[in-house]
Structure formats: structure tokens, C-alpha cells
């Protein structure tokens, strides 16, 4: 067995798992805070990648890493205004709304950027490889892992240590109480949705240099987010992280050993988890 190839696939798997985690964490945050399933998350991620493409051509990749997620978050803030009339209505209408938004965004992206597949080139020194044990490793994948880890730690700090994080946690556990404390819940929902979408924008920027960006990919991306959410447990951020890593690594190793089958691995994992533990692998059962 080729250990080096295995190790390299492991890095690729973990990094793609981290990217999926960023997208899925946004969905999970919005679901647990607002009881709103955002089917447009894949489209937002794609928008992040396209904005990254444009900004990279003008200003360079590092600026794109900073600005593109913010642009996506602003678009998300506008979209959130559309959802406001539906918060107390049947959930079906919210789902159809986010689906419609995903369609509009996919075609809107196509209208702006065209149908050709776009590629983003990362700055020279990170698109190189570094050598370890005499074999080359792609630096960019390691960078993704580092950025995503920093982000995860940052999110954890925001959640546990700041006032905003405290209010977020409060609204997840008891929405009406937060409202009656005199906090503007509508504004909070806006912020929450924008944070969730900002995460997907970041994921989109990170994924941009390693895939060919095409406007038809939004539902494929959405599927990888969905599988991870189902496996990890829909409202458990930590479960989503573990699930994303598992799926990412399984996918990467699968592409090494089962090249014709590996696109089905996430779906298969999802089905197995649904049979064994329908509420998610990493959710503690409530007593």
C-alpha cells in the first residue's frame, strides 16, 4: 500500500470536509436559531466562489478571502428581508421560498458570469507544494485546514465569550423569552442569517481555487451539505463537524480505491445513519 498517497488523500479529505463543514455549520446555525432550512446555502457558496473569482482578478486572492464572504453576507441580508413575512407560517412555504431563491441565484450567476467554467488561481507561494519525507504535498489544502480551524475556534469564542454569542445561544434555547427581554428578535434573525450565509461565502472562497466553478453546481454542493447535516444531527454544530470530516475522508479515500463508486459514498453513509440513528450520529438522546 502506498502510504504517501494515502496521507495525501487524507489531507485532501480533511480539507474538503472542513469546507463542507463551513457551509453546513451555517445551515445548522440558521436551523437551530430560526427553524429555517436554507436550501439556498449551496447557491450562496457558489456566489462566494464567483465573487472570489472577480475580486481575485482585480485585487488578488487575499482581498477576496476578506471581501467575498462579506458580499455574500450582504446579499443574504437582502434575501432575509424576503423571508420575514413567512416566519410564523407553514414551514413548507419557507422551504419553497429558499428553493426559489436558489433557482434565481443559479440563473442570476449565469446571467452575470456566463456559462463557462471559471478557475481561480491561488497566489504563487500557496499553490506550490511543500515536501515532507521526500514527497510533495499541496500547500493550499493545508492552508484550508488551518483557516477552517481558526474559523472554528473563532466561532467557538464568539459563541461562548461575547454578548452576541450569548444572545444566539439564548435564542436557540428559548425564543420567546429573548423577545420578552426587549431584544429585537427580527434584527437578531437578520444577523444570524447573515452569519450563516457569511460562512458559506467563506467556504465558497476556499473551494474556488480547487474546483472549476460552474453555475450548475449549486445543488451538488447543497447535497454534500445535506448529507453532512443528516449524519451529524441537524442542530448539532459539533456533530456536523465530525460528520463533515468523516464524509470528507471517506470521499477522498474512496476516490483512491473505488473511483467509479465514490460519488455515492456520502449518500450511502447518510442512508446507513438514517437506519441506525435517525436523529444523527452525534446527538445525545434526550432523557
Amino acid at each position: 500500500m502506498d502510504w504517501v498517497a494515502l496521507l495525501r488523500q487524507l489531507i485532501v479529505g480533511i480539507s474538503s470536509g472542513m469546507i463542507t463543514f463551513l457551509g453546513a455549520a451555517g445551515v445548522s446555525l440558521v436551523v437551530s436559531g430560526m427553524s429555517l432550512m436554507n436550501f439556498a446555502q449551496g447557491a450562496f457558496m457558489l456566489l462566494g466562489a464567483y465573487v472570489c473569482y472577480t475580486i481575485t482578478r482585480v485585487m488578488g486572492f487575499w482581498w477576496a478571502l476578506l471581501i467575498a464572504p462579506l458580499v455574500v453576507a450582504i446579499v443574504g441580508g437582502i434575501v432575509e428581508l424576503l423571508m420575514r413575512p413567512l416566519y410564523k407560517k407553514n414551514m413548507l412555504f419557507q422551504l419553497i421560498l429558499t428553493m426559489g431563491i436558489a433557482f434565481v441565484m443559479a440563473d442570476g450567476i449565469q446571467l452575470i458570469w456566463g456559462t463557462l467554467v471559471k478557475t481561480v488561481t491561488a497566489p504563487v507561494f500557496i499553490s506550490r507544494t511543500f515536501s515532507l519525507l521526500g514527497t510533495p504535498f499541496p500547500t493550499y489544502y493545508v492552508l484550508i485546514i488551518v483557516i477552517a480551524c481558526l474559523f472554528a475556534i473563532g466561532m467557538w469564542l464568539v459563541f461562548e465569550k461575547t454578548k452576541l454569542g450569548m444572545i444566539f445561544r439564548a435564542i436557540i434555547s428559548d425564543r420567546e423569552m429573548v423577545g420578552s427581554l426587549g431584544i429585537n428578535v427580527n434584527k437578531l434573525y437578520s444577523i444570524m442569517f447573515m452569519v450563516g450565509v457569511w460562512m458559506s461565502g467563506l467556504a465558497g472562497v476556499l473551494i474556488a481555487p480547487i474546483i472549476g466553478i460552474s453555475s450548475q453546481k449549486s445543488f451538488g454542493i447543497l447535497f454534500s451539505i445535506m448529507t453532512v447535516i443528516v449524519i451529524g444531527g441537524i442542530t448539532s454544530m459539533r456533530g456536523v463537524l465530525y460528520a463533515a470530516l468523516i464524509v470528507g475522508v471517506a470521499n477522498a479515500l474512496g476516490s483512491l480505491y473505488l473511483p467509479w463508486f465514490y460519488t455515492l459514498i456520502p449518500g450511502l453513509l447518510m442512508v446507513i445513519v438514517l437506519i441506525l440513528r435517525p436523529e444523527g450520529l452525534f446527538v445525545r438522546s434526550e432523557d
Binding site: M99, G100, A102, F103, V104, M105, A106
Partner: peptide
């Protein structure tokens, strides 16, 4: 058509 359908949905 996909985008138009999206608008109709919204």
C-alpha cells in the same frame, strides 16, 4: 426558465 420559475415561486 429556471430563474423565472424561481421568481414565480418567491
Amino acid at each position: 426558465w429556471q430563474g423565472i420559475l424561481g421568481v414565480i415561486m418567491i
